[in-house]
């Protein structure tokens, strides 16, 4: 049966790890999707069409979550009962916040100057740090199994994600 209790990893027959073979995930997604997609059921009965819709929606959600490192880490923590992104938890080290402010100023400046080079520099710096955080998350989640610490890193990672999204938006504005 379409078991909504089955978690995203189980759905694709994958081990619940942060360090994920994205090729295997992609293959599993395609293999499952080619079985359940609505295109396969346009000539079937209503019951099958409804199930197909439910399955595909579920499979898309699982795939989107596991594909993105940020969402995958958050999901792994959720599976452990840790809600890392609880809006009431806003604790952040002061030096990290200072750094954030510096980046935001740099972003505002690049936007004001319509400087593509400025945006690219910023994107490279922040992108590099986000990469490093991913490695850290892999270590904390898969090797150390230090989940509270992983949750802290994830909260920092979220700041980086937001900055990267704002840089993206700034590119569009400048163009």
């Amino acid at each position: 049966m379409l078991d909504f209790n089955r978690n995203h990893f189980e759905l694709f027959g994958l081990a619940p790890r942060f360090a994920l073979d994205t090729g295997a995930l992609e293959r599993a997604y395609r293999d499952v999707q080619s079985q359940v997609h609505p295109d396969r059921f346009t000539h079937a009965g209503e019951a099958e069409q409804r199930l197909s819709m439910q399955w595909t929606t579920r499979v898309n959600e699982a795939y989107q979550t596991l594909r993105q490192p940020f969402d995958r880490a958050n999901y792994l923590l959720e599976l452990r009962g840790i809600h890392a992104l609880d809006p009431n938890n806003t604790k952040m080290p002061a030096d990290f916040l200072m750094q954030q402010m510096a980046w935001r100023e740099a972003l505002a400046e690049a936007k004001a100057d319509k400087s593509l080079a400025g945006l690219q520099d910023l994107e490279r710096d922040i992108g590099g740090l986000a990469q490093a955080m991913q490695a850290q998350l892999a270590n904390l989640l898969d090797q150390q199994q230090d989940f509270p610490h992983a949750a802290e890193v994830l909260r920092k990672y979220r700041f980086m994600q937001k900055l990267l999204a704002e840089i993206d938006a700034a590119y569009e504005e400048i163009e």
């Binding site: 049966m1 599993a28 499952v32 079985q35 359940v36 019951a47 099958e48 409804r50 199930l51």
Partner: peptide, 25 residues
């Protein structure tokens, strides 16, 4: 008939997903 086959449809869907993943592994 739709109603009466919904359980069967669910089992078929489940089986085909299992088959797809087994093939992959």
């Amino acid at each position: 008939l739709n109603q009466g086959t919904s359980e069967f449809a669910a089992r078929r869907m489940d089986a085909s997903v299992k088959r797809a993943l087994k093939g992959q592994r």
